[in-house]
């Protein structure tokens, strides 16, 4: 296992993070150490073992199809960094 700066850059792009040159190097080293440690899971024989997503077995949590009041435009937009009318405003999206 060896995490390169290029790996770090790829992952940062996926995660929408921007890292400085020093940070990239630092993260590459730290991720390398952590992922190196995590390699120990390979020792485990997990053939036929079901993966666990929930430790406590719960299934079929539903709600009925009944309308609940919305929170209202004002509350919805209250924390918006930028809005226009009742829209959230973002830098132009080009399709």
């Amino acid at each position: 296992m060896s995490i390169t700066v290029a790996d770090v850059e790829h992952v940062a792009r996926l995660a929408r993070l921007e890292l400085g040159a020093d940070e990239k190097k630092l993260f590459a080293g730290q991720m390398d150490a952590i992922l190196g440690y995590v390699e120990k899971l390979k020792e485990l024989n997990t053939d036929g073992v079901r993966p666990t997503s929930h430790a406590i077995p719960v299934e079929n949590a539903f709600r009925e199809d009944l309308v609940c009041p919305s929170i209202g435009v004002d509350k919805a937009l209250d924390n918006a960094p930028l809005k226009s009318g009742t829209y959230f405003s973002v830098p132009k999206v080009i399709e």
Partner: peptide, 27 residues
């Protein structure tokens, strides 16, 4: 750091080796 690690563990080509393996270890 944790977002980076987690993104890496879920990313294409590593999902089974990391995330699924960890879920099995969790079992």
């Amino acid at each position: 750091r944790r977002i980076m690690l987690g993104t890496y563990a879920l990313s294409s080509g590593y999902y089974d080796a990391y995330y699924v393996k960890a879920q099995k270890a969790r079992t």
